[in-house]
Design a protein around this nucleic acid. Structure first.
Length: 649
DNA sequence: CTTAGGG
DNA sequence: CCCTAAG
């Protein structure tokens, strides 16, 4: 029962940190020219930067570093809790963009702890921008969601409940709220996580929790406002994107967040299927970095691989419904810098005096340049579904991927002036009214789907059709998954009289957070903002795959145990040496960290080991008996293969 | 995605 | 273990 439950996260806006444009030198270089187009491009650059290095952290009320004694396990409400949840309770959860170093996984813990037994209704919204909008969630939920729509349609006021005071702490402005909603229609599968920016799920009839990050528009609120608690408003640490003095070397900005490779569990058919079906569904637009035509099989595969190591691969997973959000939903706060002090410390000084209320701007300029800084950007609504039994680590990754997926998409930046969209790109800032002496104007930026892409596709209106297959992506999360799997293992598996070690991928070991956490600084600079050159603009989206980057960590080494070796040998004896996937399925289905490639490699080394003298062998000694079997099997299958070859000739 | 091999 | 060409 518990396993059937899922959390669904809808991100109606993930607010990213402010992007102060650095120092004098940087600013000089980056001075926004009086050209609308340039303006947009620079802004995009910033976004692109964001797309590179975000970590999802959790915000804890005031304390920042709790001891992470609590297991990284997502709080699961018991069934009763769920039931009650349908009625009127609420729990909250905050996520935030997190500095690689300062925010640890632990931050969620305390909060989660207190939520442990609460009902799945979480409703959080961007504190800073309690925009009262209403996003018809029917768009996301699909037709089956009538009831939910009813529930949610009338509750778009959450934002007003938020206290602006909660952002007093200088660095607590940007928060991500997670809303956990209830739905009487649960997902239709177990232990899976689904992402979808549009139509999240096809659910059966069980409770489900939903989380949504809100920003501009409020949406998907449970019927009872009671379920919106304010205790989540406590200031949270967040991350800032800061400018760098020396933007000479803009590195890192193009690197995506690391994604745990083990997402791709080879043995998991379900995943693979989804994975596969997912691809053709994905609109090319979502893959800026891939120019290859998706229809081309070879390039398709190539793309697969090339994405493998990069978080952005996940982008393909998301159904980004560009139609579901309008400009207003993705807005930003921009601040025009006051005249420069021409002191090196002026950056920090400016940061300490953020605009009273986000959306405001103050203009000034010493010269004909308009200097501004973007306080924050919010990204569109995202939708994630994740089992309640998933770990926090999984949640973080899910959010991270969703966010990076959106940020990496073909968005363009729109410029808003006094709430109105500035359509004419050819006009100068001055002509448009954006000038240093225009004190009252409000300048804003909005992310919007790039019309170039949307129009290029003949299927604009159905980029992400709701009816096509399942717009869901699920990936196994956490230990529970493996547990589940052990239960529904094929009978064949029982042939194995060997106990196969079922090892769970430890989040600590593999999660980006865990890794990045160490060695990162205390700086709140999540992203070293690079220089604002046009190059960066192009580089970020296109070349992000060029570097595996410092992020992609090598998997931890996990020597095969004798038991595993025996299982491998046994499987190979039976299946041969050319069917590693089958071997995997047969003998290591539950060992998620062993991929068929691993098995193949292991076999290779086993053969080698068997051939060398015992003195030369290292590691845990493998019984000679096994090694003999290895040689025998290897010989046999080699010959077998040879025969096959001959037959074909 | 899987296989096969080199690194 | 990683990376990649090839299927």
């Amino acid at each position: 029962m518990v396993l059937n439950r899922r959390l669904e996260y809808g991100f109606n806006g993930y607010q990213v940190p402010a992007m102060p444009r650095g120092t004098r030198s940087a600013r000089r270089r980056n001075s926004i020219k009086k050209n609308g187009e340039d303006n947009k491009m620079h802004a995009f650059d910033l976004l692109a930067t964001l797309a590179g290095k975000l970590l999802v952290g959790n915000s804890s009320s005031s304390s920042s570093s709790n001891s992470s004694t609590k297991k990284d396990q997502f709080p699961v409400t018991d069934s009763t809790g769920i039931e009650e949840g349908c009625h009127n309770q609420c729990k909250q959860l905050e996520l935030q963009l997190c500095d690689q170093g300062s925010c640890g996984r632990s931050m969620l813990d305390s909060q989660l702890e207190s939520q442990q037994h609460e009902d799945p209704k979480l409703s959080l919204e961007d504190i800073q921008h309690p925009v009262i909008g209403s996003t018809d969630c029917s768009e996301r939920l699909g037709t089956d969601e009538d009831k939910r729509n009813d529930e949610t349609s009338g509750h778009a006021v959450l934002g007003t409940l938020m206290s602006t005071d909660s952002k007093l702490e200088d660095d607590t402005q940007n928060e991500i709220k997670v809303e956990q909603l209830y739905s009487e229609k649960p997902p239709n599968d177990n232990g899976a996580v689904m992402y979808s920016l549009r139509e999240p799920v096809v659910w059966d009839a069980k409770p489900l929790t939903q989380v949504s990050l809100e920003s501009g528009a409020a949406a998907s609120f449970p019927e009872n406002k009671d379920c919106i608690s304010l205790d989540c408003l406590s200031p949270a640490r967040n991350v800032e994107v800061v400018g760098r003095d020396d933007d000479e070397k803009s590195s890192g900005c193009t690197h995506p967040i690391p994604i745990k490779k083990s997402f791709r569990h080879i043995g998991d058919r379900r995943i693979r299927k989804v994975w596969a079906s997912r691809h053709w569904k994905v609109h090319p637009r979502t893959g800026v970095n891939f120019k290859a035509d998706y229809k081309d099989k070879s390039s398709y595969y190539k793309r697969q691989r090339s994405q493998r190591n990069y978080p952005f691969k996940k982008r393909k997973i998301f159904d980004i419904d560009f139609e579901s959000y309008s400009d207003k939903e993705i807005s930003s706060n921009a601040t025009v810098y006051p005249p420069e002090n021409h002191t090196d410390g002026d950056v920090s000084a400016k940061r300490k005096s953020p605009p009273a209320s986000g959306q405001h701007l103050s203009y000034q300029s010493t010269d004909s340049h308009v200097k501004l800084r973007i306080e924050s950007f919010t990204v569109p609504e995202l939708f994630i579904e994740i089992p309640e039994t998933a770990t926090i680590g999984s949640l973080k990754r899910a959010v991270m991927e969703a966010v990076s997926g959106v940020l990496g998409s073909e968005l363009r930046v729109g410029v808003l002036l006094q709430g109105k969209k500035v359509g004419d790109d050819s006009k100068t800032l001055l002509q448009t009214g954006i000038s240093h002496d225009n004190q009252l104007s409000s300048l804003g930026f909005a992310l919007e789907p790039d019309p170039l892409y949307t129009s290029a596709s003949p299927k604009v209106s159905s980029l992400f059709p709701c009816d096509v297959s399942q717009p869901l992506i699920r990936y196994p999360t956490g230990p529970n998954d493996s547990q589940e799997r052990t239960h529904d293992t094929l009978p064949e598996h029982q042939e194995m009289n060997l106990p196969i070690v079922v090892e769970n991928d430890c989040d600590l070991a593999t999660s980006p957070v865990g890794v990045l956490k160490k060695g990162s600084t205390q700086s709140k600079a999540l992203i070293p903002v690079s220089s604002m050159n046009v190059e960066a603009l192009a580089v970020v989206p296109v070349h992000r795959k060029s570097k595996r980057s410092e992020f992609a960590q090598r998997r931890i080494r996990r020597p095969f145990s004798v038991t595993e070796v025996e299982a491998l040998v046994q499987a190979v004896e039976k299946l041969g040496t050319g069917r590693w996937r089958d071997v995997k399925l047969r003998a290591f289905d539950s060992a998620k960290h062993r991929t068929y490639v691993d098995l193949k490699d292991k076999w290779k080394t086993l053969v080698h080991t068997a051939r060398i003298s015992p003195q030369q062998r290292r590691g845990e000694p493998v019984p000679q008996e096994l090694l003999d079997r290895v040689l025998t099997a290897h010989a046999y299958w080699s010959q077998h293969q040879a025969k096959q070859q001959l037959k074909h000739i």
